[in-house]
Design a protein around this nucleic acid. Structure first.
Lengths: 199, 199
DNA sequence: GTCTATAATCCGATAGAC
DNA sequence: GTCTATCGGATTATAGAC
């Protein structure tokens, strides 16, 4: 197998294990074993654990960016775009209930570790924030677009944390419905801003 | 020093370190050094790390319970009670921005570890949930009291996570104000339910 | 109740053969 | 590029002197 494929496998496995087990808990041996690699060979691809973390964060940011770009091209209205963000909680419900949000939990862990990559880990958050803000601008809420974006991000994080803690399957549904009701109560400043949205 | 005082010191230090560094990251040596105890003597008081975790959780639940009982006796109206809960975010802002919420971050960590104390760690959440639910019942919202309680808990968790991630000092103020506005928009079903509340 | 000494294990990381 | 072997250090935990 080529070095590039092996490296990609390592990043994919590390991405999953950092999410499911946490960054510090996941050892080189865990990743190597899950890839089917010897510990020794591992260091041919990554010199330190922090290098793997950087690679995982870079990949998450890239994946998030391309997902958001695709959503913006597929979904016609800003309201529909925002709704797609909200529905992440439904689409990923099983994993969220087991492990929380990949971004939020990693940020929390790295903050406690005072890790150098602490700020880099917020990258996906920053992308969501900018993208959601852009949707609210399109909705005619230019003045408070960023605050509204942070508000939605805040809600999704709170829902993820409580869903993990309580393991209540109905809770996510209820709060997602409440978020969508909130979204539709946000009246656009200019009446035609979301004219393409159905009904 | 007596065994009880030493044990109490260990629990206090462990409580702080589990919060600031995380549970797994904190070693026996860390706790022992911070108390000023040798590693060997440590095992006289606690046999395993899980025993310390249990003691920390028990103490947190006890502290939360007495805090909520005191609030209920001091604050006259349910609205004022709920507002005290919301204001936790202001009172603990510096620590929250550095380390997040002690309960939420511990629950997240233990969930990833599939730790046996995973469910016990939600104890303070359950207390807040019941207590907030009781306030909403007093407000005349008996039917959806629990959902409203979870909604407030959810918001406080989301605010804590984003405050830690972005380090934005104004964000907490803005969202706390929004929470209080939300609270006052929750009309009581029976008009005199919150009659003791000032203005 | 407190200490030193130490066992057993696992960690991240390196060296070197193939 | 992959392997085995291993180092130095940190970890949880125990035994036993004082």
């Amino acid at each position: 197998m080529g070095a590039r494929e092996t490296r990609q496998q390592i990043v994919d496995v590390a991405d999953r294990l950092f999410y499911e087990q946490g960054f510090e808990t996941t050892s080189f041996a865990d990743i190597a074993a899950s890839v089917g690699l010897s510990r020794g060979n591992f260091y041919y691809h990554f010199k330190t654990k922090d290098e793997i973390l950087d690679a995982v964060i870079v990949q998450r940011v890239a994946n998030t960016r391309s997902m958001l770009m695709a959503w913006e091209q597929e979904a016609v209205s800003p309201t529909e775009c925002i709704r797609r963000f909200i529905r992440i909680l439904i689409a990923n419900r099983p994993k969220i209930m087991a492990y929380g949000c990949p971004v939020g939990t990693l940020c929390n862990e790295l903050a406690k570790l005072k890790h150098v990559a602490k700020d880099d880990a917020t990258g996906p958050f920053a992308l969501f924030r900018d993208w959601l803000g852009r949707q609210f601008v399109r909705l005619g809420r230019k003045k408070d677009a960023d605050a509204l974006a942070l508000h939605l991000l805040m809600r999704s994080q709170g829902i993820a944390t409580l869903a993990t803690a309580f393991g209540d399957v109905d809770f996510i549904d209820r709060e997602v419905a409440d978020m969508e009701a909130w979204l539709h109560s946000q009246r656009p400043a200019s009446p035609n801003a979301d004219s393409l949205q159905p009904a």
